[in-house]
Amino acid sequence: MLSALIVYLVFPHISNNHKAKLLHPLMIGISVAMFLLTQLVMPFIPRYTPIVLGYVSSVSPEEVIDLTNKEREAAGVPKVETDPALTQAALGKASYMIAKNFWAHTAPDGTEPWKFVSDSGYQYRYAGENLARDFANSESVVKAWVNSPSHKENLLSSRYQDIGVAVVKGELDGVQTTLVVQFFGTKMGSGAINVRQKETQVTTIPELAKVAGSAQEKAGIFLSPFFAKRNLAFFLVSLFFLVLSIDMIVVGQRNTARVSSKSFAHLLFLAMVMGVIVISKAGNIL
């Protein structure tokens, strides 16, 4: 019974009109619908299981600053100095995103990044912001920024003299995530006094960020939504790749005459899709 079902689904046979049932448009459509269903169900998994959705990350602000300066050095641009006020601004922005559950340069309530810079006492002539989330390590964060022209422009701009970076763990849309906020700036001549006044507040902010909840603090099995989705996607495409290969070989050997599309073309297309899945990486920048 089971073997007959497998033959019906996977092998070209008289029972399926010489085309594996899985390759019929209706079955492909059902597979796509089931795949999409798993995406919809995924956010609800933590509610009913001990699984925690999130990303394991080892990004550190010091490494991000160090790597940023290495990129600037390589490009012949002067290094940027860590500024306590900008660091506080970055922590403030990251904590605000966690608290208000958003991921953007400008908050849904209209709060712009520059408000955090000004509130920290850093009176800027120039300021810039790079954002990142869900990256595994500092190298991949900086690499992603360097690969993006607009972020690279910030990273390598000779207009900036100071830098502040914050790495904050917290929950966004039910997923444990790590946010990286990178502020660049150049002070106005009169900003030095204000900056010094705010330096005393810097130590309190990391504690606030920690309260927002780190992934490691929550008990349970840790599951990366990206890798779960990627593995499932790879499995689905591989399954169709396998069935198409069987179809092409069997039909070729039997010389079966049928009205059908070209399995070889589908194989090329799915091989390319598999290639893109393989090179895809977790992490987003803004």
């Binding site: 795949f35 991921w103 989330r133 990206f226 990627r230 996607a233 169709f240 899945i277 895809s280």
Partner: peptide, 17 residues
């Protein structure tokens, strides 16, 4: 059908949140 399968899978890995 095959194009929809491929595009759906690609979009799911592109938009990972």
């Amino acid at each position: 059908a095959v194009a929809v399968l491929g595009v759906t899978v690609l979009l799911s890995v592109i938009w990972d949140f």
